[in-house]
Simulated scan of single mutants.
Amino acid sequence: MGNLADRIEEYLKQILEKTSEGYIVLQRSELAGEFECVPSQINYVLDTRFTVERGYLVESRRGGGGYLRIIRLGMGSEGQYQKVMRQLIGDQLSRDRTNALVERLFEEELVTLREAALIKSVLSGNNLGGEFRSWDELRARLMKDILTTLSRDDLV
């Protein structure tokens, strides 16, 4: 099956799929023991695979009574995820964060594979070369517009 990080990610996603609450609570040390790894490997997976851009919030408390809470942000008809992302994008958006956002939109079937590729291409900045200095700023504005458009109900 893939590397350790892939296995941990898949395991956590399977648990999240089975829960009706939309979140899971785990002990970092127990999870590390189950995968026979150090807790920092669990942290790596959470930091890279369970980000807000990918549709997750992770709450963590370290220490003896510590826990991990992984919350799956729902898309919902009210556009909860889109609203959260518009707020969190801020004034600048990197290419990596943009790609993670677009991948989540595809996973939630809000865009097709072709539309996702188109959005990534347009927002990559490759076509602008060195002519534009504030590409991360422009990317943030464009991504907010895309999210706003996707959350509208009056589209034909």
Results as ranks from 00 to 15, higher is better:
Val38Met: 04
Gln82Ser: 13
Phe106Asn: 07
Thr51Glu: 06
Gln87Tyr: 10
Tyr23Cys: 01
Leu101Asn: 03
Ala140Met: 03
Gly76Phe: 06
Leu101Pro: 03
Gly64His: 12
Thr51Trp: 07
Glu10Pro: 01
Ile89Cys: 06
Ile71Val: 15
Gln27Tyr: 12
Ile8Cys: 02
Gly33Leu: 02
Val38Gln: 14
Tyr67His: 07
Arg54His: 08
Glu30Arg: 07
Val58Trp: 00
Trp135Cys: 01
Phe106Pro: 01
Phe50His: 04
Leu138Gln: 10
Val45Met: 03
Leu73Gly: 07
Gly90Met: 01
Gly130Ala: 11
Val84Ser: 04
Ser121Trp: 11
Glu9Asp: 07
Gly65Lys: 04
Gly2Ser: 11
Tyr11Ile: 00
Gly79Ile: 01
Glu53Tyr: 13
Tyr67Val: 00
Leu46Arg: 00
Thr148Asn: 12
Leu113Pro: 09
Leu4Ile: 15
Arg62Tyr: 12
Gly33Asn: 14
Ile89Asn: 07
Leu118Val: 13
Leu16Cys: 04
Arg114His: 14
Arg114Gly: 14
Gln14Val: 09
Ser60Trp: 00
Tyr11Gln: 00
Ser124Leu: 06
Ser124Gly: 09
Ile71Arg: 04
Tyr67Arg: 00
Ser40Arg: 13
Arg49Thr: 03
Leu31Ala: 07
Arg49Ser: 10
Arg133Ser: 10
Ser124Ile: 07
Arg62Gly: 11
Gly66Leu: 02
Lys144Glu: 12
Glu103Ser: 14
Asp47Ala: 14
Ser29Asn: 09
Gln87Leu: 11
